[in-house]
Design a protein around this nucleic acid. Structure first.
Lengths: 157, 157
DNA sequence: GTTCTACTTCAAGTCGACTTGAAGTCAAGA
DNA sequence: TCTTGACTTCAAGTCGACTTGAAGTAGAAC
């Protein structure tokens, strides 16, 4: 949403800087239905219509990237929505970023332990996993919540 | 979380060390409703009833630990159900474990990049994140799916 | 014997992020 | 001008893992 564009926008010059929803969908790799959904949630906005079709400012691509980034960092759409100031410019709380980084760090360590254990179990010669000491240790950890309390969301992918 | 209160062994001896659902719920840290749900899904089974109340074999605790483990590794309940042979003994495909480990590994690396970038952005002196080169690089990566395509499930928490 | 209470069943609700379906609209091409 | 087909709206559906609520039951305490 940096200004700059919006130059000669004569109606006949079809050379609009505006992007059709299909174009945005294609370029961002996001279904049109999702774009409408995001708009409804206030995450993005269309600049106008051509007929019924939504038109977007090219800046929407950046915004979608920002949204995608937030999603992969584990933010909910609502959280992401809060990251944009009313004027549309991103306003990201640095403290929040740091907190999320710490969270990720923790999660990463957990997953590391898990990965190593899984690998061990995969190679372990014990006839049954239940007889493998490493596996049992993992089990105990999981049982006591040592690895990751199965709260609500799950990491896996 | 060890023995103790090994059920009031009152009444008839040979109470077979069966655990009441409340006991299992408490020891495993899993709500009774979840135990019923798991049973319905075929993930665990009760050995009988005392009145209406379900009774469980102590082995169910280990099984629940196994389930918790699978959950934190990112397996769905259905996948976990498939990990038990019809006889109830775990039958974990080592190849599957290895595959999951690889998956985790990949995810871990993604999250690592993300964490580093978040940390940088949090400390970055650029007036706006959009002007921070590192942040922009991250954005581009997210936009091109380089970090993690926001498929269906999200890693977060 | 009565009451208390923790269990029981079954159906339905929840949550987040979308997707899907039906019915309608409109710019562009034949 | 008419047809086409990609868009539009709005409501409802989906998915996974549970949770919640209503109505019922039985063992244990009194």
């Amino acid at each position: 949403m940096t200004d700059m564009t919006e130059t000669t926008e004569t109606s006949d010059a079809t050379e609009t800087t505006q992007l059709d929803i299909a174009e945005v969908s294609h370029r961002a790799g996001v279904p049109a239905s999702t774009l409408r959904y995001y708009e409804e949630k206030g995450l993005i906005s269309s600049t106008g219509r051509r007929g019924l079709r939504r038109q977007y400012d090219p800046g929407v691509l950046e915004r979608l990237a920002l949204i995608a980034l937030g999603r992969t960092a584990g933010f909910s759409l609502d959280e992401i929505a809060d990251m944009f100031a009313p004027d549309g410019r991103p306003r990201i709380d640095r403290g929040m970023l740091a907190a999320k980084a710490d969270e990720l760090d923790h999660r990463i360590r957990e997953l590391g332990v898990l990965r190593d254990s899984l690998r061990h179990a995969a190679a372990c010669p014990a006839p049954s996993h239940l007889e493998c000491p490493t596996f049992r240790r993992l089990l105990d950890a999981a049982a006591s919540g040592g690895v990751a309390a199965p709260g609500r969301r799950i990491p896996g992918r």
